[in-house]
């Protein structure tokens, strides 16, 4: 029992379950899932589908945070990748052609990869603080996206493209499968190769890792590249959902939601240990919260207020934990022990 309580996933999972239970009490229809035309519908299914872009971005953010970094540019990268993909489709003579759509997706994601590599270059090679380095793209990225769309909201009609966010496969939203694929791929790469543990080592103690022969630079660079690619896919999903490239609205604030999801999932902003499962739970928690806020009849524009409250609670709990540890330490030593840098 104690072991369960101490598990790093315990509180995140409890928080998510509590939200679901509260929702169910407030509106029993929350957990009901109906079948229409062999497709599942319901609030939970909506959460699974709508969470896909955030899921992708959060997975990338998790890897970056594990290296002691942060990537503020994910929203801007989403806007760029969506703009690129949609512009290609819009300019193509055959927007319904699967080949066109695949090319569009590929190019959009490749551009995102380049942007991620650029971030990684600034952080790992030039040595700019991650917040600042990614701020550059956060600022300029949307401008680039606007240029690509010519300042307009590009809209398209393309069945294959639409399918990604709105289609169904064996009764479940296709976007959900994209989420699952991303989770599985990230989990496999991090845990089946040595990348995960080396990333954690670099995040926890960069100098000790260097002495042990770890290539910190490559690992950090790769983290930003991965974050770029995942944000690129998220941008595709986002535009597929609304079938329009809105450079101003695409991925707006998603960097903040993603950071929140990662932190909710038990990964420390100071870097180090991370869990894919924790981040997944974090994403679902945020998405459920959003759904709750919507259900409460709060205008979606006011939703940030609730998220602010959640952020404050989470950081206070984390800091309280810190205080708890300090208190325990002080108890072992002496009643009063101010924190001193040693």
């Amino acid at each position: 029992m104690k072991k369960i309580l101490r598990h790093r996933m315990f509180w995140p999972v409890i928080a998510l379950l509590a939200l679901i239970v509260l929702n169910t009490i407030a509106r029993p229809s929350f957990i009901s899932i109906t079948v229409q035309n062999g497709q599942l519908y319901g609030a939970l299914i909506d959460i699974l589908r709508n969470s896909a872009p955030l899921m992708l971005v959060s997975l990338g953010m998790m890897i970056v945070i594990a290296t002691r970094g942060i990537d503020l540019s994910v929203g801007a990268i989403m806007a760029v990748s969506g703009a690129v993909a949609l512009t290609i489709i819009a300019d193509s003579p055959s927007p319904d052609d699967l080949g066109t759509v695949l090319v569009a997706i590929l190019v959009g994601v490749l551009v995102s990869l380049l942007l991620g590599i650029w971030n990684g270059f600034l952080v790992a090679v030039v040595g700019v603080q991650p917040i600042i380095a990614t701020l550059v793209l956060m600022l300029a990225g949307r401008g680039v996206a606007l240029l690509i769309t010519g300042g307009f909201i590009t809209t398209i009609n393309s069945a294959p493209y639409k399918f990604m966010a709105q289609g169904y496969v064996i009764g479940l939203p296709f976007a959900f499968f994209v989420s699952i694929a991303a989770i599985v791929i990230v989990a496999l790469i991090e845990r089946r190769t040595a990348l995960g543990v080396l990333t954690e080592a670099v995040g926890i103690n960069p100098e000790a890792s260097r002495l042990a022969g770890v290539r910190a630079r490559g690992i950090i660079w790769g983290a930003y590249a991965a974050s770029g690619v995942l944000a690129g896919f998220a941008g595709i999903l986002y535009t597929s959902n609304i079938m329009a490239a809105d450079a101003n609205a695409a991925g707006l604030y998603i960097e903040l939601y993603a950071i929140l999801a990662v932190v909710l999932g038990g990964t420390s902003l100071a870097g180090g240990k991370f869990t894919v499962a924790g981040t997944v739970v974090g994403v679902f928690t945020i998405e459920t919260l959003r759904s709750t806020i919507l259900f409460l009849g709060v205008p979606s524009a006011v939703a940030p207020l609730f998220l602010a409250i959640v952020v404050v609670i989470v950081v206070l709990v984390q800091s309280q934990r810190l205080r708890g540890a300090v208190a325990k330490l002080a108890q072992a030593l002496r009643p009063k022990k101010p924190e001193v840098a040693r």
Partner: peptide, 30 residues
């Protein structure tokens, strides 16, 4: 207060304030 007394990174603390202020702005009127 968040930064100084709770060791929250300025970036995160001001982010929370940004969310809160934006939400409150919409609460006043849409």
């Amino acid at each position: 207060v968040l930064v100084q007394y709770f060791d929250v990174q300025p970036f995160i603390a001001s982010l929370a304030a940004m969310f809160a202020a934006r939400g409150l702005a919409f609460m006043v009127s849409l």
